[in-house]
């Protein structure tokens, strides 16, 4: 088990440009996940020195404001809000965005839309803007809009993806090359400190992690959903372009597919929340990234952050459990 991060270390200088831009200690970013990353998870990640993100997708404006205020009551550290304009139409997205401009969380992260008009408004309000994309063409667009930080989302990632199947290790250096000095975060299958080291090696300034935080004590995922992530192996996720709840048909996404016979709901991708009936977790194909094979338990979010932070430290044999057999073989 990873040791909790020491308080003294938490007050040290931010580790790199992405952390500095967001006012956090470690460039460990918890991805915004609709219905799953609520105030408790967001605050837990931020309190551990990373950046928690509220999942704002499908959250009506009133509820979003409530969640932001609840998070503020749980942490005095910076946190972010993730919104995606794929549900409810432009009026809902604008109303959500106005709540963000009024409440001023430190960070807003955006995915899957045209943000040319919104990014300058967020920056004028003093909010750091992160845009998550899965191709160089989309990254160039995000840079032109004025994004402060880019997330290079590899096709290994769980949940929704941009069209294309580029892996994170190819995507990160390609983004770094065009980013004009902006920090590039790596997303997709990142679960432990060895993954962090791998993406640092190709130029990432930080990591963006979803699935590993779904399987944390504080996430709002249904217990059966968390258990499926723990039980899944590396072979168990599938890239799909069918239907996922609330998204346009054909939007790419990665799930742990449900194989039950006579279950039409298995063709729907989704996440099961703690407030949903168990049947949701039993019948849906559940969002998860390729890192599932390395998730062996449901732990406090702070422990996940500590595991990932270990990847930023200088290399020491045995730092990562996955590295030990390799080192022994080399010796």
């Amino acid at each position: 088990m990873m040791q909790p991060i020491q308080q003294d270390d938490m007050h040290a200088a931010p580790m790199g440009p992405a952390a500095a831009l967001c006012g956090i200690r470690y460039p460990v970013f918890q991805a915004g996940m609709a219905g799953i990353s609520g105030p408790a998870l967001t605050a837990a990640v931020s309190n551990a020195g990373g950046l928690g993100h509220l999942g704002g997708l499908r959250l009506p404006p009133l509820a979003l404001r409530k969640w932001i205020r609840e998070t503020r009551a749980l942490t005095d550290k910076p946190f972010g809000v993730n919104i995606v304009p794929s549900f409810g139409g432009p009026e809902v997205f604008e109303a959500q965005f106005r709540v963000i401009l009024e409440e001023k969380p430190r960070v807003v992260s955006l995915f899957y839309g045209d943000f040319a008009e919104m990014i300058p408004r967020a920056k004028a309000a003093g909010i750091t803007v992160i845009v998550q994309v899965g191709s160089v063409a989309l990254a160039r667009q995000a840079i032109a809009w004025g994004a402060d930080i880019l997330v290079a989302q590899g096709a290994e990632g769980g949940g929704h993806l941009n069209r294309g199947t580029i892996g994170v290790l190819s995507l990160v250096p390609a983004f770094v090359e065009i980013a004009e000095g902006r920090p590039v975060l790596a997303a997709g299958g990142i679960t432990d400190c060895a993954d962090v080291r791998a993406v640092l090696e190709v130029g990432a300034a930080g990591v963006w992690v979803g699935t590993a935080f779904v399987a944390s004590d504080e996430s709002l995922a249904h217990d059966l959903y968390k258990q499926k992530i723990v039980e899944a192996t590396i072979d168990d996720t599938e890239y799909r372009t069918g239907y996922s709840f609330g998204w346009k048909f054909g939007t790419p996404h990665r799930v742990i597919p449900n194989r039950k016979k006579w279950n039409p709901i298995k063709y729907v991708g989704g996440g099961a929340r703690v407030i949903d009936k168990p049947e949701m977790a039993e019948k849906l194909s559940l969002y998860a990234g390729q890192g599932v094979g390395k998730i062996h338990g449901i732990v406090p979010a702070a422990e996940r952050v500590a595991e990932l932070v270990a990847g930023f430290s200088s290399w020491r044999a045995g730092d990562c459990r996955t590295a030990a057999p390799l080192l022994q073989a080399v010796a």
Binding site: G89, E91, F245, I265, G270, I275, M280
Partner: peptide, 16 residues
Amino acid sequence: SYHPLPVGTPNPIEVM
């Protein structure tokens, strides 16, 4: 047109 968001936090399958 877009459809108004459901009131409350309904089960997604029931919404569909």
